[in-house]
Amino acid sequence: MTKIVFFIILTFGVELFLSGHNNPGGGFIGGLVLSSAFVLLYLVYDIETVHRGTPFDFKRVAAFGVFLAVGTGMLSLLFGESFLSQTTWLVDLPVFGETELGTMTIFEAGVALTVLGVVVTIILGISEDVE
């Protein structure tokens, strides 16, 4: 039952993350919803079981997210633009038709990974047993 709810929340988080251009949503809120899914897993199971299922450290997820976001910002310096400027392309994809691809999405993915890692780390940190 928990696994079903977990995947529903994950799907909703990814949908919020992808709809961030023209609708309410974006990287920050998507990351918060994804982290709430992981918090639900930590509530229902325990820390050892979840860490066996997700073989990555959430601090490293946060660090990789910051690297991705800042790296996307720095990449625009190579093309002579100012820091964090963005660009979009219109691409013909086979299934989706004419799609707008932008470098903003990579930055948003970095923000989402950062929020996911930081929130899960904070929740685990404040729930630690002090004995």
Binding site: Y42, L43, D46, I47, E48, L124, D129
Partner: peptide, 8 residues
């Protein structure tokens, strides 16, 4: 009594 357990 506690929210996130280390070992279930």
């Amino acid at each position: 009594g506690k929210i996130v357990e280390r070992e279930r």
